[in-house]
Amino acid sequence: MHQHFLEVKGLGKRFPGKDGDLVVFENASFSLERGEFVCIIGHSGCGKSTILNVLAGLDRPSEGEVYMAGREVRGPSLERGVVFQNYSLLPWRSSLSNVTFGVRARRPGWSKAQVREHSLRYLHMVGLKDGAEHRKPAQLSGGMRQRVSIARAFATEPELLLLDEPFGALDALTRGTIQDELLKVCAETHQTVFMITHDVDEAILLADRVLLMTNGPHARVAESVRVSIERPRDRTTIVHDPAYYPIRNHLVDFLVTRSRELADRARLPEASGGDPMEPLEVDPGADARAGEPSLPPQHGRLMAVNGN
């Protein structure tokens, strides 16, 4: 049997309340392959961040388990690097020192010079140079800080990189350039990435697959959408790819209408506590790739989803 690199099985989080438990999400099951870039999209409150924290080992699920490379995830580990939305840099350390902090923890045997050289390489990779590496985070812009945070995570060379809405607090221009850098670094390092985002275009640009979550409470990972657009991708030309709009329409349609419909259905008493189920595999770009005219999202493949 094929073993996935990362396996999430029947994950759920509930908080005990006066009239019954509050179930944030349940039966979340999905998997990641080595070298894959997977984004997860869902409305606020569906428990995306909790899932990420469980993968990081920072939070415990109420039910279900996570396996990475065959071993159960029970706590935080250097094998799983995390980039938080608010950067989480240590403000009393310079950019470089924030990165060496991670590298020193990862490679206790390395010499000082080795750690420094390795850290500088990653800082340069995300575009931090010309003295910015010696400044404190408070003296850097939000974009620069997030670059340092990304450099720190990449420099520790984790097996799995977890990004919690890393560009959420950045302006559109900065976001674009850092996305490009992230694409470049991922292409160079073949890093396995699991990323939370709210931005459909960002997900299409970066991801191999997009996981879609229904609304909470009782949220589920409903679909796994393949982003069948060739790499290397470029933000300026990606919109001309025939698969772009079918995928985009599918994602937007899910977020606008179906995430709510599916959630309403999940809240029915008989639906709650059902069996763990794998998300439905969807490939909205397949028709476009095959040379057929792209269909509006109400047709064809989508009917299969709704009829599920």
């Binding site: 935080p76 799983r80 240590l90 902090f101 991670g102 923890a105 990862r106 520790t156």
Partner: peptide, 27 residues
């Protein structure tokens, strides 16, 4: 809590967390 989480994800032990993260943060 973020800084403590940084220490946790970098697998620092209690002693390292105290001296490398909490002490400078609380200094």
């Amino acid at each position: 809590k973020d800084w403590v989480n940084v220490a946790r994800t970098h697998e620092l032990n209690a002693f390292q967390t105290a001296f490398q993260v909490i002490l400078p943060a609380a200094a």
